Computed example of a mutant assay.
Amino acid sequence: MSLPNQVRHILSVIEQSMHDLGLWQAMPPEAQAFSSTEPFCIDSMLAEEWLQWVLLPRMTALLDANAPLPTRFVIAPYFEEALKDKQPNCMPLLVLLQKLDALLNIEPE
């Protein structure tokens, strides 16, 4: 399976895991939350909000546009810390985020 297809698959599994864990939200954060300049919008969104409303749509847009995917990509450590109070419930999601990191933490050719 090609890298884009692998990434698309893991993104869909991450979404399903968020649903399963009750982390998926029906309503997005307020518009100003998206204006944050902090990494992961840490000052305006919960980690799971950023994952749902920022990362998943942006990655899907890159895939849909056949645009280059990010490299040296590492988000799992942030989520391990941000969701530590929700572990072990969130362990399946953290494993998926580690897999996404492994797919995208590559040296460009």
Rank of each mutant, 00 (worst) to 15 (best):
G22N: 09
N5A: 15
I106H: 08
H19G: 07
L97S: 06
L3M: 04
A26S: 13
S2F: 05
P29V: 13
F40S: 01
I14H: 01
I14N: 02
P57V: 12
A65F: 00
T37H: 14
L63Q: 08
E30Q: 13
V95H: 12
P70I: 03
I75R: 01
N66H: 07
L104T: 08
V74W: 04
L94W: 00
T71Q: 05
L3T: 05
M45N: 11
D20C: 06
L97N: 05
Q87F: 07
C90M: 12
S2E: 15
C90E: 09
R72D: 11
V54L: 07
M59P: 04
L55D: 04
M27Y: 01
L96W: 04
K99S: 09
L11I: 13
I10Y: 08
L21M: 05
G22E: 06
A61M: 13
P28M: 10
Q98S: 12
L100F: 05
L51I: 04
M59E: 10
S36K: 12
F40W: 10
L11H: 05
P68A: 05
E15R: 14
S17Y: 00
L69P: 01
G22A: 11
W50C: 05
H9L: 15
I14Q: 02
L103V: 09
H9I: 04
Q25I: 06
A47M: 03
F34R: 10
E48P: 01
S35Q: 13
P39L: 10
R72Y: 07
Q16R: 10
A76S: 15
K99D: 12
Q98A: 14
L3W: 01
P92H: 09
A33L: 08
A67T: 02
D101F: 03
M18H: 03
R72C: 06
A26H: 11
N105S: 11
F34I: 13
P92K: 12
S35N: 12
E38V: 14
R58K: 10
L46C: 04
W53D: 14
L63D: 07
E109Y: 00
L100W: 04
L21P: 00
L51H: 03
W53A: 15
S12L: 14
N66P: 01
I42D: 03
A65S: 12
A76C: 10
I10H: 08
H9K: 12
C41F: 10
K84F: 01
D43K: 14
A31G: 07
R72Q: 13
T71F: 03
A33K: 03
A102I: 06
R8L: 12
W53R: 08
L56H: 11
M91W: 08
S2R: 07
A61I: 09
M18F: 00
I75P: 01
V13Q: 14
P4Y: 06
V54Y: 00
C90W: 00
M91H: 07
E80L: 04
Q16W: 00
L23Q: 08
N89A: 15
V13P: 02
V74Y: 05
W50P: 02
A67P: 01
Q6C: 10
E38N: 12
M59V: 05
E81S: 03
P4T: 09
D64F: 00
S44G: 08
D20A: 15
F79D: 01
R58W: 00
P4I: 11
S36H: 09
N66Y: 04
E30K: 06
S12C: 08
A76L: 07
A76W: 03
E38K: 15
P68N: 05
D43N: 14
E109I: 08
F34W: 06
E48R: 01
